[in-house]
Design a protein around this nucleic acid. Structure first.
Lengths: 133, 133
DNA sequence: CAGAATCCGTCTGGATACTG
DNA sequence: CAGTATCCAGACGGATTCTG
């Protein structure tokens, strides 16, 4: 039957979707951020190593993503004054804790991508019947 | 079976950041998606209930977010032909599994928003010293 | 190698007005 | 109540070129 457990249930607290939370969530949930952090979860990497590991990312986006992550205290940037220059990126302790969460998210997506693709096809089929041109 | 064993050494498998995964991740990690799914984790909600619960979301974005989630098989949309109309949104079983992950992400952000804010301030201070106009 | 800088089309998303 | 439709500024992000 209709279980109408009146909305006395845990009401979502408004102060948990404040501007700061929203902003951080926007960056942290970003697709390139997820890939970057997950890849860095395998250990420190150099710039071009990361670029090769993250399929489809442009140099510009990798730079911007890394810069933002560094600013947010999630990755460190270590420059070795050699020739040619070498720059290592690694997760901070804070980044390590984020890794766990993002790895879960990434795994969920990987595991359910097919089901979602099928759901989309089914939805589009239903819509197509409703609106024949 | 077409198992490509090239570059087995790489910890991160390339086919795990394929276009589909990337696409799903882009949507699922979206800030409004996270808030919407987390709020729906508290039970079915009506359109305006959701709108009131998600601070700062516009009607347009709520509509688009819900439509996408419905298409992806993550939420259901139940229309009650009453006057005035009533539409309930709820998580599907697939949505329930996503909820766990997104709740973690949301909680991580809530817990670490302050630390990140401070990291940003520190980073900006360091940068400011380097570039005095 | 690791980027910075620039150009520029695409997409995002808020505001507003209208509807069944 | 629960949307749809339209407008439009600004952010996103790829491609390309240049540098220490």
């Amino acid at each position: 039957m209709l279980q109408r457990h009146t909305e006395v249930t845990t009401e979502f607290r408004r102060d948990e979707c404040n501007p700061i939370t929203r902003d951080v969530l926007t960056r942290v949930g970003d697709k390139w951020t997820v890939f970057t952090v997950v890849v860095l979860g395998g250990g420190p990497k150099r710039f071009n190593e990361l670029k090769r590991s993250i399929d489809g990312i442009s140099q510009r986006m990798l730079t911007l993503t890394l810069r933002t992550l560094e600013r947010d205290g999630i990755v460190t940037r270590s420059v070795f004054p050699t020739v040619p220059p070498r720059v290592d990126y690694a997760l901070t302790p804070l980044g390590m804790t984020l890794l766990r969460t993002l790895k879960d998210l990434h795994d969920w997506v990987s595991s359910n991508a097919d089901e979602i693709t099928q759901a989309r096809a089914a939805f589009d089929r239903r819509s197509a019947v409703q609106q024949p041109l």
